[in-house]
Design a protein around this nucleic acid. Structure first.
Lengths: 139, 139
DNA sequence: GCTACACCTTCCCATGATGGGAAGGTCAAT
DNA sequence: ATTGACCTTCCCATCATGGGAAGGTGTAGC
């Protein structure tokens, strides 16, 4: 199977397949004409990588996961450790986004958003410390 | 004020201050010796930029916000539009992270994480379609 | 066989925001 | 005059992804 068909079959773009090979994540057999050749095993691997990417794992983490996956005697502890670590990172990012979202939602709600120039959003951005203090003391 | 002091006063690194100048976000006066010179106005601007960054606005969005901020006759509608658009993007990212988090939490929970090689995480990654179907039909 | 066209190869470049670090100029205190 | 802290510009790296050029290959139709 050529790289285009492998991309189609795995849902991973040809560009990315070459990149994964370049960083040592997988190797592809070559035909006499220099074309890469993929079989069901490789497609399976590409799908594995694609799913791990869709869960937000980094290439470094995926390299570790793939290597554990290939090793039939691996301890599941290792796999779990990587996944739990990534989950913790995701939770941190979620918390960051939530704090941004909350602040921004308050600003957007407070802004009338019409022709007039006065704007709580710009006020917040230019002197949020003062405004926050004012809000706190008003509570 | 030299760039180091400006960095200290604004909470934006000297590297980033130079970068913001390079992309046209702000301009700094130069002294005879070539050093950049910052006053309270610039510090104020840097703080504005820093706060916008901490809310996740892109440099492009911040450029627009700064230009509206400088324009005392701007319509608040414009500011609100940018903020609301960014908020929507944040909510999309939050939803993506949440869906990853949920999937991953289920896998981590299912994996015993000991010396044994059998591992639901790897099973999910290698054939998640089948497993998801199985889960669904089991509900 | 020739022509098109679709596909493959490698190589270089760009992204966005940030930092590291080198090579060299400036300034202030000793 | 020396030292050390600061400044300048320039280049490089990140991370995963895509765009695109230049050139080779394979196949289908004439």
């Amino acid at each position: 199977m050529n790289i285009g068909a492998a991309a189609e079959a795995s849902g991973v773009s040809a560009k990315m397949i070459r990149y994964y090979e370049e960083i040592g994540l997988m190797k592809a057999a070559r035909r006499a004409n220099g074309y890469r050749d993929y079989g069901t095993r490789e497609i399976h691997e590409l799908r594995f990588i694609g799913r791990a990417r869709s869960l937000g794992f980094s290439m470094e983490e995926i390299a570790a996961l793939v290597s554990l996956w290939r090793d039939s005697g691996r301890p599941s502890r290792e796999v779990r450790r990587i996944a739990a670590e990534h989950l913790a990172q995701l939770e941190i990012r979620a918390a960051e986004i939530q704090s941004m979202t909350q602040a921004l939602r308050g600003m957007v709600r407070a802004c009338h958003g019409d022709d007039r120039p006065d704007c709580p959003i710009l006020d917040d951005l230019s002197q949020s410390a003062r405004r926050k203090a004012a809000l706190k003391s008003a509570q």
